[in-house]
Design a protein around this nucleic acid. Sequence first.
DNA 1: ACCAGTCAAGGAAGC
DNA 2: GCTTCCTTGACTGGT
Length: 297
Amino acid sequence: MKLSLCCISNTLHNQNIKFKMMRVTNFLKLPRDQAINILTDRIIQNFITLKKTIEYCENNKFHGYRITSDLLPVINHPSILIKFEDLPRQNDLSFVINECKQLINKSTLRFSSHPSEFISLTSLNKDIISNSIRDLQTHGFIFDLLGLPNNYMAPLNIHVRKDGDPESISRVVINNINKCPGNVKNRLVLENNDNKNGTWSVKKLITYIHTRTGIPITFDNLHHEMLPDNLNEQQAFEAAYCTWPVEPIFHYSEGINGSRKHADFATKLPISYMPVTWEVELKQKDLAIQKMYAMRN
DNA sequence: ACCAGTCAAGGAAGC
DNA sequence: GCTTCCTTGACTGGT
């Protein structure tokens, strides 16, 4: 059983090793130079936290790590728009990023990222699409900087969020995916979703998008439970599995009382019908993973 | 030192 | 057609 940590280690968090944020309103309140300096300090801190979190995963024999999308707060916001290379202290940034890169280079972990829920490749509004693609590009850029594979070994996983006619929505999605640069497109994968009466089950993603593009489909057990679309768990798992040219990264979580609110800990273990790495979306994070590894024994 | 309120985003759902 | 909620963890500002 291979398990992967999502973004944050609660253990490190309790030691005050945290990812730093910055809010748009706060940034805009300050003189731009001062705001950029504060932001840069926080970004450098974030790469140090990233390094410590990866080390923690290694030391605890985890099998993967989902890199947080909050490494570079607010830089892509339409009213801020800073290019990474325009940040000050480039030497300091290069230094911490290189440390992460070296660590990743000798690591056996699978790395991934799950860009924000608010990224939309389905919108008919051009600004929303260009904002979304810019955000994805930043993810691709960071993955490149960290020396991560430019392929599905290091996937960028997003949802198709809009419900409705799968034929017309899929056409919009595919068209917009094709606008993404190679370092995004080569890594982009799509995950099943679970809105009430929702559209994007594993089956629909495969039928309307995978078969036309080859884009791999991420299986999420909880989303599948909420929207099975006439496939049982094994069928959905195997159908999604077959869409990946490399070993898949799937998502495992449990809801509280049949809801989609994530539970603290697992009560059972995911069934790997075929070998996969499971990203564990449980609130107790690394503690939940450790408990799952202990349950196996 | 601590706590409650706030915040970024697009879409869904409720009225 | 408008408002509220969803989600997340850290920041902010008041005490």
